[in-house]
Design a binder for these strands. Structure first.
Lengths: 176, 176
DNA sequence: TTTCCCATGTAATCAGTTACATGATTAG
DNA sequence: CTAATCATGTAACTGATTACATGGGAAA
């Protein structure tokens, strides 16, 4: 098992304990866009396997059968082991980027009608991201450690900016 | 079937006809890093299904049982239909980016030893990409259409630059 | 002649999605 | 009381990987 999902879950739990449902929402909120995505129906059985392997434990059971999981010592160790031994090669799967490249197979008019909304949406998203980074910078402030959220936010700003600039470049190329 | 692989193959064949083996090499060379990845053992049976569906046809059989495929009219139409109807939401799976975000779970020394090579490698890759874009710009030149390769190259330059700048930002944050 | 690359074929397994079903709790 | 949300559970299916096996052709 290479186990990106498993380690994404360990990482999420190392930030803060959570139920399966809550973990699914975290994927929805932060991870899905650039890093990793998983649905509840995949997360749920994986949590059971991770508990079997003693990487996580149930630390509370609440209303609606809610089981709150926490990462164990063994889980922390496994996560760090995994992070310190990255594979030589990484592959990505982004249907979005695939579609960007395949715009080359459309005629210019169709390409333009698909590109323009991408340029607009990325500009808008960029403004939102920059605003979030700015407010986080003033409040939590200078001395804060490199949290998952900061790493992700700073990465997102730069890569959405890159997307925006690419889309604008492609649009000007189409107008020549 | 959502079928990103199928449409990636159609897109590749709409550029130029190829055998299954050649398509696998194209994934290896251009698509895998940012857009999509597939191995031969997945491509091979998909080509058979696409041929059954008349989206591609064998246009030549050569040495070593090589079958060269070409996209059909129906295949072109299917590709364009798919491109013109993008889903509302896209998810990405990049173990590389996941690992970047999870650096937050390591202590600063370990994070630095993983980040520094990323900063270096991305700088190097960026130089290579910029050089390739520059030479392509002077030779094929101004009037060329938006080919798959140009779209991919210009996108790669911008997103590798974004990665590099993010890594340098993270390293300076670690030194405070 | 032997090694490397081209090229296909396939079985077993693992990862991920879709589509359900069930029911408790909270908010309005 | 009613709707929305929280929360788990699971079966069937599709997508993707791993690990083989086979053999032709080119180049050293």
């Amino acid at each position: 098992m290479s186990g990106a999902l498993r380690h994404a879950l360990l990482g999420s739990l190392s930030q803060e304990r959570a139920s399966g449902y809550e973990l699914a929402r975290r994927f929805e909120r932060t991870l899905w866009r650039h890093a990793w995505h998983a649905q509840y129906s995949q997360i749920r059985p994986e949590l059971d396997r991770m508990a079997d392997d003693k990487l996580i434990t149930v630390v509370a059971t609440g209303a609606r059968r809610r089981r709150t999981y926490s990462i164990t010592r063994a889980g922390q160790a496994e996560l760090q082991r995994w992070l310190r031994a990255p594979p030589a090669k990484f592959v990505a799967r982004s249907e979005f980027v695939l579609r960007l490249f395949l715009l080359s197979t459309l005629d210019p008019a169709d390409a333009r009608t698909l590109l323009a909304p991408i340029a607009d949406a990325s500009a808008e998203e960029l403004a939102t991201l920059r605003a979030a980074v700015a407010t986080a910078g003033t409040s939590a402030g200078a001395g804060a450690p490199l949290s998952f959220d900061r790493l992700a936010a700073e990465f997102s700003v730069r890569s959405v900016a890159a997307l925006h600039e690419w889309a604008r470049w492609a649009l000007t190329e189409l107008d020549r």
